[in-house]
């Protein structure tokens, strides 16, 4: 279980997050919605350790947890970025195996085998040897999901997963997220798309722009 208590974050004295509270149960899908500029992405960046929080507490299973400085590989917070941020010079398979080999010190053969399983699960097995520039947007996103999953994250976060996709691909993303839920993955989805949020979410957090 992930709990946020009174999370605050400022940029240049402008308050972005003002005492935000949120609880995500294990295995559930939490959607963070709100108009642009409301701080949805900032909240996600605080949870995933890309920003330091200015105030409040983050707890995992009741224990205090600082994602910004956390080095414990048992509590990885995975992120699927809006622009995917695949490594353009590495093949799809290498994109996925890089961190498991370098960080988790897995053997190359083992990492490859696990990566192939992930790719098969996302029907991308035939793309393993391609470079990111050879993939469509939807395929890049699925590689980004596989890459995050390869680190066996406690929680998987998505930043605007539908915004860069054709409308027809929305259902594909929805099904992937729901499939991952079945396998017990806890997921946090930032989106401005309320309909999408209603289709997948177990709980929804609305973020409003704070005055200040």
């Amino acid at each position: 279980m992930l709990e946020l208590k009174n999370i605050s974050k400022e940029y240049n004295k402008r308050v972005i997050l003002d005492h935000v509270n949120m609880t995500v149960e294990d295995g559930e899908i939490m959607c963070i919605v709100g108009e642009s500029g409301a701080g949805k992405t900032t909240l996600l960046r605080c949870i995933s350790g890309l920003e330091r929080i200015d105030g409040g507490q983050i707890l995992i299973d009741g224990k205090e947890f600082d994602p910004y400085s956390n080095q414990n590989n048992d509590s990885v917070i995975g992120v699927v970025f809006q622009e995917y941020q695949l490594f353009p010079h590495l093949k799809v398979l290498e994109n996925i195996t890089l961190a498991p080999i370098m960080v988790l010190k897995k053997k190359e053969a083992e990492a490859r085998q696990e990566a192939m399983q992930l790719l098969e699960g996302l029907s991308l097995a035939d793309k393993a040897k391609l470079y990111p520039y050879q993939l469509s947007g939807g395929q890049k996103q699925r590689v980004a999901i596989a890459r995050a999953m390869a680190m066996k994250p406690r929680i998987l976060c998505y930043d605007e997963p539908t915004s860069a996709l054709d409308p027809g691909l929305r259902d594909t993303v929805k099904n992937i997220i729901l499939d991952l839920k079945k396998s017990g993955m806890t997921q946090i989805v930032v989106t401005h798309d309320m309909d999408f949020a209603k289709q997948i979410a177990d709980s929804i957090l609305k973020v409003k722009p704070s005055r200040g």
Binding site: V76, V79, Q85
Partner: peptide, 14 residues
């Protein structure tokens, strides 16, 4: 280099 490349490496714990 896009700053996002550093960030995606960071969340992968590199």
């Amino acid at each position: 280099i896009d700053h996002g490349q550093y960030e995606s490496a960071k969340v992968l714990r590199l």
